[in-house]
Design a protein around this nucleic acid. Structure first.
Lengths: 339, 339
DNA sequence: TTGTATGCGTTATCAG
DNA sequence: CTGATAACGCATACAA
């Protein structure tokens, strides 16, 4: 009947659900159920349908399913970059949680260019993703309203606020910076430096660090901002910079790779850590425990952040009410040899 | 007319292309063209449509578009893990290339469990992704045939073969291992060790390394395999292991994080590198140039691999014929202080 | 437990 | 340059 018409739009050899239904001698809906809710079928029917699926090598078209059901089973995640392991751990945790529930992950990177965020959000909403995970709590103009209007569940991560777009799981960057200053001063270091990127979260930590320093009676934090994403070489250069000018007694780096670079520079200059200068990192990446001297760092549970974000989305998608829409995972200063 | 029916399946306030068309006083297809091929519209018409889109806050439903056009504008990529920066650089390059052409990236991780690959491939084919990027050239049973049958363009990466599923861009892991052995022996190191993961690509490098050693008259390579994904601590432990037994004069590590861990262990034990033991890494991550002593490593152009993979897919998707379906990007031993 | 009919929102076709 | 209409392949409401 429509064979002529079909050939105009479809590859002739496409196997559709209807073909499977016919081969199995059942209705389409039975095939649909065999795929989606196999428990609700008589075992014999199920077996027949599955045999037909295998025989015809039927691959269900999830796009058509999404359109019909208005659910895509896709979650989108937007991060500054995955080249930096701190976010890739979060994505890893998120993926792990979602995959178990047959959701898939659409990945967007802003490369720290804030305006990319809006374009990505638009594209993802157009895809009718079922949920969205964002990095940070400050967003490009229009993002907040567009996301809200879409009515899909959204989780912000890697920071915390009492007024999330929808839900948030993270920690206070400001508090982490503050605590780091307190830690260093308590250790006896009276002049402080900061090495970090210029992104919102790094700046929040810097703000907290300065605040904490002031509260401890330390005035002025020698600061070097580096380009993002940053690497060990940036850390080394920044440290050289600090040494040439203010030469603080202790330096807080906004991630462990920068801190590692600072330690390498110290090693090259035969500067004893922490005897001559103390170095503290952030994120507690695997390298922190491995490096020599081992690196004191702020642990932030990046992977768990992803897992919790996934759980929140899944709860919402399964119709449950989410009690706590603001989840503060906190942070912990992990004391090691370098500070 | 169908308003009652619509309310049963659709959020009542959904704005569709038809609504925009009505508001702009044009047909639906004109709205479609305003979105996809704006050059083909009269400027005045285009302006009217765009005004209507803005006014109604219309968000095109790409799922419906995909179904109708049989193109999803989604590329799927499967990697062992993104926690490891070597693959995230490739993904970064891939994303960069695709985003410019309005393609999006669906991410799948196998966590080095080979059977996950088949499940991911099935899910992605069900989504009717327009292209697929795989890691490595050995795949789970059934993957090769299913992917081939789908007829979508596929690029394998991070290794090389004369018989790809479709296309391949990478380098020879075996040759890289071989060259590393030759390099170390040429430097005068006569006993060799290997630290690496148990995945296919690491094993290929090991195979090449042994082959190269043998060719240079060095018999036997002290080998320690570590779990994947590996981190600096694994590298340190593995090095301790080697020192306790065979104590080779030079060690080749299958990635720079393992090598970094080995260097850290040397620092802890006051073992001079390369005077007492030489260490060589793989991948030439940013840490290689930053660490002290700087790390001799094998550079593999991970980002370019992603970019080229993306270009190949785009070429194929735009209907062009791809001349070279096998692209060997090669590798280069970058000599630094550690070996 | 299973089947039938219809809509999901867009793009391709072909005509004007 | 623009429009009317028919697919795209599946899930859902409702009936049996």
């Amino acid at each position: 009947m429509t064979d002529i018409a079909r050939n105009r739009r479809t590859a002739a050899n496409t196997v559709r659900m209807e073909d499977v239904a016919r081969a199995a001698g059942v209705g389409m809906i039975t095939v649909s159920r065999a795929l989606n809710t196999p428990d609700k079928l008589a075992p014999a029917t199920l077996a027949r349908v599955r045999a037909a699926i295998d025989k015809l090598r039927y691959v269900p078209n999830l796009t058509a399913g999404s359109l019909a059901s208005n659910r895509s089973r896709i979650i989108a995640v937007i991060v500054p970059t995955i080249a930096n392991s701190i976010f890739s751990d979060t994505i890893d945790g998120l993926a792990e949680t979602l995959v178990e529930h047959r959701y898939q992950l659409l990945l967007g990177q802003t490369q720290y260019r804030i305006n990319e965020e809006a374009a990505l959000v638009d594209a993802f909403l157009g895809r009718r993703v079922d949920g969205l995970v964002l990095t940070g709590i400050k967003h490009a103009p229009g993002v907040r309203s567009r996301v809200k209007r879409s009515l899909i569940p959204v989780v912000e991560t890697w920071d915390i606020t009492t007024r999330p777009i929808d839900m948030v799981v993270g920690f206070s960057n400001r508090a982490a910076g503050n605590a780091s200053a307190h830690y260093l001063v308590a250790k006896g270091y009276r002049t402080l430096g900061y090495i970090g990127g210029g992104d919102d979260r790094s700046l929040a930590r810097l703000g907290g660090f300065r605040e904490g320093a002031r509260a401890c009676g330390v005035h002025g934090v020698a600061t070097v901002l580096v380009p993002t994403p940053s690497n060990p070489t940036d850390g080394a250069t920044a440290l050289a910079n600090l040494l040439a000018h203010d030469a603080p007694r202790a330096v807080f780096c906004s991630n462990d790779m920068l801190a590692a670079g600072a330690l390498f520079e110290c090693a090259r200059r035969r500067i004893a850590v922490p005897r001559q200068i103390a170095v503290m990192g952030f994120a507690d990446l695997p390298i922190a425990a491995g490096i020599e001297p081992t690196l004191t760092s702020v642990q932030v549970r990046a992977r768990e952040m992803g897992q919790r974000a996934g759980s929140l989305l899944l709860q919402r998608l399964s119709g449950e009410t989410v009690r706590d829409r603001v989840i503060d995972l906190g942070f912990a200063v992990v004391e090691r040899a370098s500070a």
